[in-house]
């Protein structure tokens, strides 16, 4: 194994690379689908920052709940939101935060 990467031009397929990187501002969609979902209601429509990109990609567990998981994988992200932004009237210190993992399909760029 060589230490330097050979210079080749490769076009990655859609979904192979994460759409968001650490530090990106994101909004969690405010959607209300019927059925099984894994984004708690209290987080929908909330804005935060990507703190961690989960590697490797994994199945969308909302789809998996319906048995639709063959070959469909995507990125999960840990998104952080200050508790003071999440809850008006939060009495704790401003640095307190909530971090939650969200599937890519629920995130919008802000």
């Amino acid at each position: 194994m060589t230490s330097s990467k050979p210079s080749v031009h490769v076009v990655k397929a859609l979904g192979e690379e994460p759409s968001f990187k650490v530090g990106d501002r994101v909004r969690i969609s405010a959607r209300y689908p019927i059925g099984h979902y894994r984004v708690p209601t209290y987080m929908r429509g909330k804005c935060g920052a990507v703190e961690f990109v989960i590697e490797p990609t994994a199945v969308n567990n909302e789809e998996e709940a319906f048995g639709r998981n063959a070959g469909k994988k995507g990125y999960y992200y840990r998104v952080g939101v200050p508790l003071a932004e999440l809850w008006p009237g939060y009495t704790g210190p401003p640095q307190d935060r909530l971090i939650i993992e969200i599937f890519e399909g629920w995130l919008e760029r802000t």
């Binding site: 987080m43 199945v59 567990n61 999960y76 210190p93 909530l98 971090i99 993992e101």
Partner: peptide, 15 residues
Amino acid sequence: PAEVEIRVNDSTAML
């Protein structure tokens, strides 16, 4: 202590 950051980690999916 108030100077310590609390991180609440909500586990919702495959982590």
